[in-house]
Write a protein that binds this DNA or RNA. Structure first.
Lengths: 229, 229
DNA sequence: CGAAAGGTTGAGTTCCGTCAAGTGTGGTGG
DNA sequence: CCACCACACTTGACGGAACTCAACCTTTCG
């Protein structure tokens, strides 16, 4: 709920606004504001008709829908520098919830639309982000289309390992799961129990080692990758 | 392989180029060319490094990946006025194949990139298309996340019914399946046999009627919708 | 300390994938 | 015109994988 300070923003050169000239960014800074959310808080709810959009500065979000039984289905994860919010639909389609304590840089849609038409570079940057999001979505579809639970869980672990790595090509060998079992299940279309059992089996087979309930160490990346198909 | 004729183009006011002023469109017309593909032909293959992009004029496409066993996984369907091709990645990520005989309006990526920076309206229009694609992807993720095969098949039928309808709100009551059983299976992460059995069961339960292998008539939309969750 | 939330494990059952055989149907060529 | 073939689709039997239900363990937090 504070003013902005783009100069010290941790995502200042990765987010969409990074493409702007200094004076353009000053204008964005004028119309946006920082907000913080605690783990589990809902940022936008499906059906909201007071549309907002935002860049994630720190933390992590999930985009999710809930069926009639209240079962959560996770449609996408959002990482820092990611952009969320409906720019074109009249109402929000999905729930956006903080996975961890998070900071966002929020804009009213009307203001942001004006900024897009005023600053052509912004449209280009958003297009690039959107293409990236689309690619991530399709990667998830690919993952969920696998028919066996072990392929899905192994694929998710490899995806996390890649995301946790600094170098874009080599996956991290050791990382913490960013999701609960229930969230992993919601992402993969499985149940909590199945995810838990598959992790146990991967450990028993010597493909991974576990430290606590969240820590993962990849013991045999090649075999883990091989299960993935 | 012919020149363009935007004036008579069937998607002239729905595709991305619709946002352009006449003289801008004339420039696009100069750098693009029409190509036709037969059902089953590959338009772009994953790994292509001679990147192209295109607007679909007529027909239908699938974006797909293939696992080590050759099992096809369909990541997205593309309808007329849709845009395909990687604008940002160095190589194509997925295969793009014609589902039916199709016509495309193709551009080299380099040319199209130039057009985007020259004509800001084009970036906006592509952003809108991209947001739509992203929404479709998430709808598919939602569908695939359903745990039972009947919910997935019923949901797919409802999606086709909505797509086949002229009016955006009410689903068509009668339509032809645009996909083979194998393609439906690849889209939903099921097997051909399971899709076939679920269709049989939906018919036996009186929720749908079938005419030939492709014709579908929705007999009880409410109950079909209810299964969907 | 107790409660709540996340996680694991076990037993039983249902569902879906696999394998296999069989039924159209459209297309090609004799 | 018909024989043949390829392809899409259907149907059945079977077994294994994943879901359900339930109990229990662990960690965190008030």
């Amino acid at each position: 709920m504070t003013g902005l300070a783009c100069d010290s923003c941790p995502v200042r050169d990765r987010a969409a606004c990074a493409s702007l000239a200094p004076e353009e960014r000053a204008e964005l800074e004028r119309i946006g504001r920082h907000r913080s959310f605690k783990r589990g808080e809902t940022i936008f709810a499906a059906g909201d008709n007071d549309p907002m959009c935002a860049t994630l500065i720190a933390g992590a979000l999930k985009i999710a829908s809930y069926d009639a039984d209240g079962v959560e289905r996770i449609l996408a994860l959002v990482h820092p520098a990611g952009f969320v919010g409906e720019m074109f639909a009249p109402v929000a389609h999905h729930h956006i919830v903080a996975l961890t304590d998070s900071k966002l840089c929020c804009f009213s849609r009307k203001d942001y639309e004006r900024a897009i038409s005023a600053f052509p570079a912004l449209a280009g940057a958003l297009l690039r982000r959107s293409a990236e999001d689309l690619h991530q979505s399709r990667a998830l579809i690919d993952l969920m289309g696998r028919r066996s639970a072990d392929a899905r869980v192994a694929g998710l672990l490899m995806a996390f390992a890649r995301a946790a790595s600094d170098s874009p090509c080599h996956p991290a060998q050791r990382f913490d799961l960013p999701l609960t079992r229930g969230e992993m299940a919601g992402l993969l279309g499985l149940t909590i129990e199945t995810v838990s059992r598959q992790l146990g089996k991967l450990e028993a087979d010597g493909l991974i080692r576990r430290a606590g309930s969240r820590g993962i160490e990849i013991a045999n990346a090649a075999r883990l990758e091989a299960i993935t198909r």
